[in-house]
Design a protein around this nucleic acid. Structure first.
Length: 554
DNA sequence: TTGAGGTTGTCTAT
DNA sequence: ATAGACAACCTCAA
């Protein structure tokens, strides 16, 4: 496809009116770890003598954090870091096929980049536009240096289908607040009917790298992750090649693609998961969302009765762009305080309950099994995310969504700033979704997909011999049954940390009080108001939920 | 002001 | 499998 983006940031200093063929270009990779449909790379490859493809290993993202609750950096768990490194190895290999290679440097990306621009006498800097706050701040610094130095910048929008800024402008200055109005404003992407030719055939060679300390793509061990215990092979293999292979595999069954309905997919499917599992590849841009979109569009043409957004496979891309747009247009999107679209809710501060949830010790097998899958795979089904997010926040534990967001951010291979925050806002009924009476049951929700509990048995082997009558509520099994199943509740597997029946009622009442306050005060809730409300609802809660229901954790 | 619609709730009855 | 009760949130269009 000829996906030359019409929406891009470009500064062409007048001191360089003609791009001469004797110029050096730097292609800065961050996301967008691919050679297909990569407008920044394509632009760099044109009319340059030398192209320097660069990736900077950023300690902000990849420095090991020994104090964290699971191996990884303070931002990313090991599964995601490994995925990223594999993606870089694959990118290097794909670049080599085009006569180039990937240059890897270590350090603070802004500083490293500016050093490279000087050292390599770069006249043109190309990188994919990024809406995440971290890159917005970083890119502003780099751009201001480049402008002063007369370096041309080419920064196209190619991570998402649409340019979030365009959507916000079309909507009158604020982001659309639901998926339907987003779709109406967005329409069809302008590049939809562009032809399918995806990869540059050659990239000008890397020039002299001077004094820069170029390294190979490091291994996780070289980055300082020593104690890796691998009991199972990773579920994902990073990289563009694997992404395209999996895309072909996923789109092989055209009828499945055309009749996909997200809400009807099965969160308990683990032998053959019920969705494409391509999200990690989209997150890092190993797979172009626009290319994927075109592939689905082609398939839909063959089926008159194909499904439609928001539930169709194509619809999932609108959700992605929707969250990117709201995230871009909302100050403090990743926080409750200072976030205008976020209901102010007096969440509990209970680290004991939070740790139980995080470490699969809630005593609810459905919840605990999901959290095991999250740690092991770095991926869980969307509805599984709903189940555990609802349980942590408005459904049972009433703990702040930001705490759950941090855990997901760390453990998910596909964790994406806008989408992760957007979904936590959604699930906690803080924004977008407000029907807080609809609470996922930690017992019956999983049961309706998986009545025998195969999913639980797989991820929580301690319960593998528990009869199916008790697998979702093992504390109700008679002691003789527990003994026979080699699983004594309270010893081998925890008792439930709360009563779902009581806790969910309490949560509804607290949500009603919080909504009431937000409405009365028109969303302007001070720290003091919030603390007063917290004291009030907790006092009432003490009256109805005895402390002993928060049983000792194993 | 009113009413319809909102990707993915649960429980019971048919 | 599907329908209605439950108790009732929000936003947006008319």
């Amino acid at each position: 496809m000829r996906l030359s983006s019409q929406t891009f940031t470009r500064f062409s200093p007048s001191s360089y009116p003609n791009m001469t063929s004797g110029s050096n270009s730097l292609m800065w990779f961050r996301k967008g770890l691919r050679i297909h449909d990569n407008p920044a790379l394509e632009y760099a490859a044109k009319n340059s003598t030398h192209v320097y493809p660069l990736f900077v290993i950023d300690p902000h993202y990849m420095k090991p954090d020994p104090t964290a609750f699971s191996p990884g950096s303070n931002l990313a768990g090991l599964n995601r870091i490994r995925f990223l490194l594999e993606s870089l190895v694959d990118l290097d290999s794909n670049l080599k096929k085009l006569g180039s290679r990937l240059l890897v440097l270590h350090g603070e990306p802004g500083e490293v980049l500016i050093r490279c621009l000087k050292e390599w006498d770069i006249k043109r800097l190309c990188f994919e536009y990024d809406t995440d706050p971290y890159y917005q701040a970083l890119d502003a610094k780099v751009q201001s240096y480049a402008l002063e130095s007369g370096i041309e910048i080419f920064s196209p929008v190619s991570h998402t289908l649409f340019n979030p800024a365009d959507i916000i402008q079309k909507n009158g200055g604020t982001p659309p607040m639901n998926c339907l109005s987003f779709s109406k404003i967005a329409g069809e992407p302008h590049w939809l009917s562009s032809s399918l030719s995806t990869t540059p055939s050659v990239i000008p060679p890397v020039g002299d790298v001077g004094n820069c300390e170029i390294s190979e793509v490091p291994t996780v061990k070289q980055l300082g992750y020593d104690d890796i215990q691998e009991d199972e092979p990773p579920v994902f293999k990073g990289g563009e090649s694997e992404a395209l292979r999996r895309l072909r595999e996923s789109t092989n069954d055209k009828k499945w693609v055309a009749t996909f309905e997200k809400p009807n997919t099965d969160p308990s499917a683990f032998i053959k998961p019920s969705t494409t599992m391509l999200s990690p590849y989209l997150k890092f841009g190993c797979l172009s969302s626009r290319y994927f979109y075109q592939c689905i569009k082609e398939i839909e043409k063959e089926f008159k009765n194909h499904t439609s957004p928001p539930v169709s496979l194509l619809g999932q891309f609108f959700w992605r762009d929707f969250f990117y747009t709201v995230g871009f247009g909302t100050p403090n999107f990743d926080r409750m305080r200072g976030n205008k679209i976020c209901r102010q809710i007096p969440w509990n501060n209970d680290d004991e309950l939070l740790a139980a949830w995080r470490d699969s010790r809630t005593g609810f097998p459905w919840i605990d099994a999901i959290m095991v899958q999250l740690r092991k795979w770095g991926w869980i089904h969307h509805l599984a995310r709903h189940s555990v997010a609802c349980f942590l926040t408005r459904g049972d534990l009433f703990i702040h969504w930001e705490k759950g967001r941090d855990v997901f951010e760390r453990l998910l291979v596909d964790s994406d700033w806008a989408i992760n925050n957007g979904n936590w806002l959604w699930l906690s009924c803080s924004a977008f979704f407000y029907q807080y009476h609809r609470i996922y049951s930690p017992i019956t929700f999983g049961k309706k997909y998986d009545p025998t509990g195969a999913y639980i048995r797989h991820f929580l082997p301690v319960l593998k011999d528990m009869p199916k009558e008790y697998i979702y509520e093992p504390w109700t099994a008679p002691l003789s049954v527990q003994t026979k199943a080699n699983c004594i509740i309270g010893k081998d597997y925890p008792k439930p940390i709360i009563s779902h029946e009581i806790a969910s009622k309490e949560c509804k009442r607290k949500m009603a009080e919080a909504y009431d306050l937000n409405k009365k005060q028109n969303g302007i809730v001070s720290d003091e108001d919030l603390q007063n409300l917290r004291t009030r609802v907790e006092d009432q809660s003490q009256a109805t939920v005895p402390r002993r229901l928060k049983q000792k954790l194993i």
